[in-house]
Amino acid sequence: MTDREYAALSRVILIRLGLFGLPAGMLAAYLWYVGGAAWWGSFLLIPAKILIFWTEIAFNGREFTYAVPLELGGTSALVYQVNQLNLTFLEFVTLFAAWQHSSAKAAFKLLGWCLLWLIFYHVFSLFIQCYSLEIGPDFANQQHIMWESSWWFRVVKNVAAFDKFLLRFWAGFPVFGLALVFSSFTFKAKRKKS
């Protein structure tokens, strides 16, 4: 892209952010807090159960419970609040609304990719946060299990910390960016075919 195109694009997105992005984000926030969070959590439970198949996951309307089997028998539950996913959701809606779509078909395609990446990312976040707790010292202390640090734990802890850093503020942006890249690829491929 040329400087001229960048200057025009940044101006258009800035205007669209105020005109469409912000109102869409407000509406998404309202819907999220009047039951949308519970609905999204219930929906996310299905792919989470498929993708994290070796443990039991349940959702009670506010939080996911991730069952950890104990060595001496029985299970213990780790909790993940669904509201931690709020910002990613709002950001994706805001960016989707602010983006200038070339056609309705392109918009639907982008929406599909956004949702797909959002689901993958949310399931990954749920897994990595719970798993880092499962193999961490706090959980071992609670269960009176001997605990020793390992390189694997350090890797998982760092990935989980980076995920938290993204999740609290920015994760909607990489989700939207990935969707944009994949959408542009598939959209061009289809046009070439015809």
Binding site: D3, Y6, R11, L14, L17, L22, L87, L90, E91, G172
Partner: peptide, 25 residues
């Protein structure tokens, strides 16, 4: 947890777009 975090992200994006627009203009 929601309002100000979202607002900061949008403000940052807005400031970045505005500054990037000024520079490229």
């Amino acid at each position: 947890e929601t309002f100000w975090q979202y607002a900061l992200v949008i403000v940052t994006l807005g400031i970045f777009l505005f500054c990037a627009h000024q520079v490229s203009k």
